[in-house]
Nucleic acid binder design. Structure first.
Lengths: 337, 337
DNA sequence: ATTGAATACGAAATCGATTCCGTGATTAAA
DNA sequence: TTTAATCACGGAATCGATTTCGTATTCAAT
């Protein structure tokens, strides 16, 4: 049934379990000769240490958790790739949990991880998570915690974000330079926290270019695609329709494509579009989509590296309460040119 | 540092640890009154059972592993979503490992999972994994193992695949009906195992329609995008260029779009294209892409359900050595119409 | 020759939850 | 009223690896 354990190994070698354990862990207390014998026998008997016995004793699991809202948006898939690249190098295991933007689900997951199952947590909070008590408990328990993208400000730890403000500003500036006079901003009401900086960049760019800020041009969309479609359609069909659109999230840009098609609006002539997005085939859309893309793999790699460093090196100081900014990149394509 | 354990709980309640354990597990040997007291105190002291102690004792981890080649292809992201949906319902944890199409990496991962860390494994093998000894070891160890999409025939267990043959046939038939005479098939050399059925569907459809099979129309592409680009460009630029293309994987369809653009080939007039793909925005490509999409979430849900059933219900028979087929769906769009 | 320190290993406790085996008390059956 | 069964719980072993104490030997130093 189960495999060989250290006791069986010890018996086969006519040694005590303690000696075998030390030999396997390359302790200086064991002679080279014995070490070789043990290693050889362990190999021969195909010995695999029991991870739970070890974790129980050592109070660490060599496992970290990644808690994310969703995967369908390929942003997080790409981040995971980056994370996994690092954790594998360190021999750590990666548990993945989805909150599906549900705060209650997030609480459950986080609470379940309070029992030591993981040595560290990387997470992106579910939209406007107001309550932070469950996160504070993780922090106070001393479990290394890192936020990325959707961060929680009130927890004093390191957070990785992208430069939403600058990107929003840059994208808006670009649209203005292309001659847009009425630039709209599309965002998901659920994503306020992350979209807010993008929105500020947008409004500041307008202001700096002497364009009036117009609340009517800021369109709050919801979760339902069909509803958004109607909303955007009315918006783009109105008398005072915008000549430029900056979408805070990819899915709203997609909907804009559909609506533009229905309304026979020609992009970029009738409407210029820029979107925050990590789509790989922006080039292939009709017209190709100007995007602001985040350094997803870098997100994963840097956050995971910081965590791995903390977990594997002795006397590492606690994470600084700071926000690390990884710049996004504006790729201008035909939808805005 | 660490949390409260069952012994501390017992002390606070003036009970034996064994009694507390039984009360928490709702044993019939414990009176209702005591159970209530224990539950209340456990709640008050914020007791969280140690998962490693439990796993060590029970020889099960309530964790399963998902081993996949890659995530960038959103096929697997979507499957994971389906899996996670099920595992969460059962309170199971999900470990994710990527092989990056590297057989050696796959062996390492699989071998590491032989120690009981997971109760079950769901995997999609890295391309043409010829050696199956490492998989056989998992099977012989008695760890429930399920394959999906990229399966390993020689292991007698349940495998989930999609109907590549029928889809390949249907797509080819569709292209023929649209008037294509010279239909090409694009595949990745690394993906032979999975593309082979699609290829057979393609060739049979040609045969059944009285079209000659032409080896020159079957294009083996490689891993490098740039190389593929050149290859496809020469292919589509030749004198005997095809008037229809069936791409076995999405990335080759993407490259075809680029090449068609460069060569000023008009789709669908000069070239009709159909691709196996799970892209969500096929509608938005220029022209919109006709796809054969797999039921990804269903893949994840069904495979995970089968596994959960096996792990949580007593006396479940071993997985049958069978192949479950989940049909793909042809969505005809402008690239082929 | 005696003391001191390495050297190389063994015995047993430990991590925290579960469970086998008892055992005193209460209740039901004879 | 005696016997048997049931109830409700305690004690201790157990899962498998690590680690704290020991201890018997060897070797060098005084």
């Amino acid at each position: 049934m189960s495999g060989v354990n250290i006791k069986m190994l010890a018996e086969a070698l006519q040694l005590a379990p303690s000696t075998v354990s030390r030999a396997l862990n390359d302790s200086h207390e064991i002679s080279e000769k014995t070490k070789k014998r043990v290693l050889a026998m362990a190999d021969k008997m195909n010995y695999q240490p029991n991870p739970f016995a070890r974790s129980l004793r050592e109070h660490r699991s060599k496992t970290i958790a990644m808690i994310i809202p969703d995967l369908v948006n390929n942003f997080f898939s790409q981040v995971i790739e980056g994370v996994e690249e690092i954790t594998q190098q360190f021999g750590y295991h990666l548990l993945v949990y989805h909150t599906h933007e549900n705060v209650e689900r997030e609480k459950e997951i986080v609470t379940h991880l309070l029992n030591g199952r993981v040595d560290g947590i990387m997470m992106s909070v579910s939209h406007q998570t107001k309550e932070t008590e469950h996160l504070m408990r993780v922090y106070q328990k001393g479990i290394p915690l890192i936020f990325f993208d959707r961060i929680c400000d009130s927890i004093p730890t390191t957070k990785f974000v992208t430069n939403g403000y600058e990107s929003g500003y840059e994208a808006t500036q670009h649209l203005i330079e292309q001659g847009c006079k009425r630039i709209a901003f599309l965002l998901l009401s659920k994503e306020i926290s992350i979209s807010q900086q993008r929105l500020r960049g947008y409004t500041d760019a307008l202001k700096d270019n002497g364009l009036e800020k117009n609340e009517d041009l800021i369109l709050m969309c919801g979760k339902d695609d069909h509803y958004n479609h109607q909303l955007i359609k009315e918006f783009l069909n109105g008398e005072h329709r915008p000549d430029g659109v900056l979408a805070a999230v990819e899915k709203l840009a997609i909907t804009t494509y559909y609506v533009a098609g229905e309304l026979k609006l020609n992009m970029p002539d009738d409407l210029r579009l820029v979107s925050f997005s990590n789509m790989k085939i922006a080039d292939l859309l009709n017209p190709s989509l100007t995007t602001i893309s985040q350094p997803t793999h870098e997100f994963g790699r840097q956050a995971a590296s910081l965590l791995m460093n903390k977990l594997t090196k002795r006397n590492t100081p606690d994470f600084k309460d700071e926000i690390v900014v990884l710049p996004s990149k504006l790729d201008i394509r035909k939808s805005s040119k």
